[in-house]
Design a protein around this nucleic acid. Structure first.
Length: 591
DNA sequence: GTGAAGGGCCAC
DNA sequence: AAACGTGGCCCTTCAC
């Protein structure tokens, strides 16, 4: 096995290798780096493995006065990487693509990501792992030794073992892809795999780009919240401890306001009839009768604001870019939605005070676009309910149009209360809401809530039918799909009624939420190509929203391209229901 | 001291 | 009788 690879350290053999590789259909692709963040370290090795040879390129020997990105000797390599062919097979290709993008200055074209393929095949099974070693063991039945992964890739002379490890990782990729392709084909997952693979580079770039955050504005806001929090905390402390002292001979005990157990004890002393939980929706009904409850809710909101979105948030701003570079997991949820962490940029509070701190730097603009009611449009498409679809075609305001139909009045006669009911119904159905929950949410009695739900589903009979069917199929087929073919398996105990119920609600929601994710991902990959040649860079995406930063001079052009990308992506999946994208140019994220 | 579990709450 | 879907983060509590 020794010497199965070729180590490349100079221009001429690199050119020859790339010449050979450019004739391949598929190559394995991997990188070894000295750090995890491209801006923090060096890209040491880049491995490409074709049908004839496995090449290990030592980029240290191409370093000079100029950065690697400007070294023309690497042009042949850039060409192979950028091209759609050969296909580059990598595990967690986002990682390698970020390093190549940052250090070599090129996108990677024609990506096949074995990690994403494995995630698609496992279809939401939570206990499956998707590291390279796990995936290779599962699909190839071979052991992969990862012990050199964390070795010193900075050393002047790499050991034979290190280079062999690097070569091996790339060399197994094409065989692994073959196994995965077979399973993707059998499971009907080829289209969604293509969609995911095309999204890797846009996301890699988005993470490198980062989202500009004005730290000073953020800090000023945090200071205000702090003052309020301290004020509210002492008031609340007073209210709660006056009750505690009566029961406590040893004097006033400070209550830990962040401890649900201590807080619920204190509230009980005050006579608040708490049941099992002190969560906001449980406490809300008592806020009028017990001032301490209202005060507690006020305190919680401020405390949450300071813990999750306080000073510590500023530590995520990179000193060298002034920007936030969150991690995005491309298949963060089984539905195909992204998840985001360090920090989670998808859960920034909606209040203007926070959102306005996310800005375009001087001389630039943000172009912000989101889909209007995308999940309800998807439900309309799936159910083919003509009245429901009609609300999108005719109505100026969707919830008003729904209210008019459900309560059988003209749109002009719809009361604010009716519209509010309609809105909550529309959102609720997507999650498989039941009467009791709807009652709790609206203050209706169970009977009234049942009536209202019945009314809604009588207005939209096909919608009701589709949702019931979705739940039924989850039980019989134990599987559900989105429009792109993305799959979710259901595993539950047939005799456990609540588990069957949960699976049913899941089956109602999965195709809707998942198709929405399909559409967004298509939009991102179309957009990424469409923005070439403009000043636009994608800086964030939140489920049905995409944010692009660009120069003032071509903001209008970018807005047009963003809108067009999102619309055409949605139209690939929605044939009967119109698509609506709202887009605008702004200086910050608040507007 | 560390880490898992659970409560609570932010987003869509 | 009932639990309305998908995430991540912070804090407390409790076990090792």
């Amino acid at each position: 096995m020794d010497g199965f690879y070729k180590l490349i350290t100079e221009k001429k053999s690199l050119a020859q290798a790339c010449e050979e590789l450019s004739g391949e259909d598929v190559v394995g692709f991997d990188c070894e780096t000295t750090e995890l963040e491209p801006r923090d370290g060096k890209l040491r090795l880049l491995q490409l493995s074709g049908s004839k040879n496995t090449y290990v390129i030592d980029l240290r020997s191409f370093e000079g006065k100029k950065p690697l990105a400007e070294n023309r000797d690497l042009d042949p390599l850039r060409k192979v990487l950028f091209a759609q062919r050969p296909i580059k097979v990598a595990h967690n290709a986002k990682f390698d693509s970020k390093w190549v993008a940052h250090h070599l200055g090129t996108d990677v074209g024609g990506i096949f990501d074995t990690m994403l393929a494995s995630q698609l095949i496992s279809a939401g099974e939570r206990d499956r792992r998707h590291g390279l070693a796990d995936v290779a063991a599962f699909f190839l039945g071979t052991e992969v030794d990862k012990s050199e992964q964390v070795s010193d890739w900075n050393a002047a002379e790499l050991t034979e073992s290190q280079i062999r490890y690097a070569a091996k990782d790339a060399a197994i990729m094409t065989g692994l892809r073959n196994k995965l392709l077979e399973r993707l084909r059998v499971d009907g997952l080829e289209q969604v795999a293509e969609l995911e693979n095309a999204c890797v580079m846009p996301i890699a770039r988005m993470e490198l780009n980062g989202f500009y955050l004005d730290g000073d504005s953020w800090l000023r806001h945090v200071e205000q919240i702090k003052e309020k929090r301290d004020e509210v905390a002492s008031e609340l402390q007073e209210m709660l401890s006056s009750a505690a002292t009566q029961a406590n001979l040893f004097g006033v005990a400070e209550i830990n306001l962040d401890s649900p157990t201590q807080v619920s004890d204190a509230l009980r002393q005050l006579g608040v009839p708490i049941e099992d939980s002190t969560s906001a929706n449980q406490l809300e009904p008592f806020a009028n009768d017990f001032p301490a409850v209202g005060k507690l809710l006020e305190y919680r909101a401020l405390a949450k604001a300071l813990s999750s979105f306080g000073e510590n948030f500023l530590e995520f701003i990179r000193k060298d870019t002034g920007r936030i570079h969150s991690d995005f997991r491309q298949i963060g949820a089984p539905t195909g939605r992204f998840s985001s962490s360090n920090p989670n940029i998808q859960q920034i509070p909606h209040q203007e005070a926070y959102r306005r701190c996310f800005k375009a730097p001087d001389g630039r603009k943000l172009v912000i676009a989101d889909y209007s009611q995308i999940e309800l449009r998807i439900l309309a498409e799936f159910s083919d309910d003509q009245s429901f679809i009609g609300s999108f075609v005719s109505g100026k305001d969707f919830h008003t149009a729904t209210a008019a139909q459900v309560f059988n009045v003209n749109e002009e006669e719809v009361t604010p209360e009716q519209r509010s009911f309609a809105k909550r119904l529309n959102f609720g159905v997507v999650y498989g809401i039941g009467a009791s929950r709807f009652a709790a949410m609206t203050g209706l009695t169970i009977r009234e809530a049942e009536d209202t739900l019945r009314r809604y589903f009588t207005t939209y009979p096909r919608l009701d039918e589709w949702l019931r069917n979705a739940a039924k199929r989850a039980v019989s087929e134990r599987m559900s799909r989105t429009a792109s073919g993305r799959m979710m398996k259901f595993n539950f105990d047939q005799d456990d009624r609540s588990a069957v119920g949960a699976a049913g609600r899941n089956a109602k929601n999965f195709p809707i939420q998942g198709t929405s994710a399909d559409i967004l991902k298509r939009a991102l990959s179309i957009l990424h190509e469409s923005l070439r040649g403009t000043s636009g860079i994608i800086v964030n995406t939140v489920h049905d929203e995409i944010i692009v930063e660009c120069g003032e001079h071509d903001a209008e052009d970018v807005l047009e391209k963003l809108t067009a990308s999102m619309e055409s992506a949605a139209k690939e999946f929605l044939k009967k229901v119109p698509v609506k994208v709202d887009a605008h140019i702004s200086d910050d994220w608040s507007k």
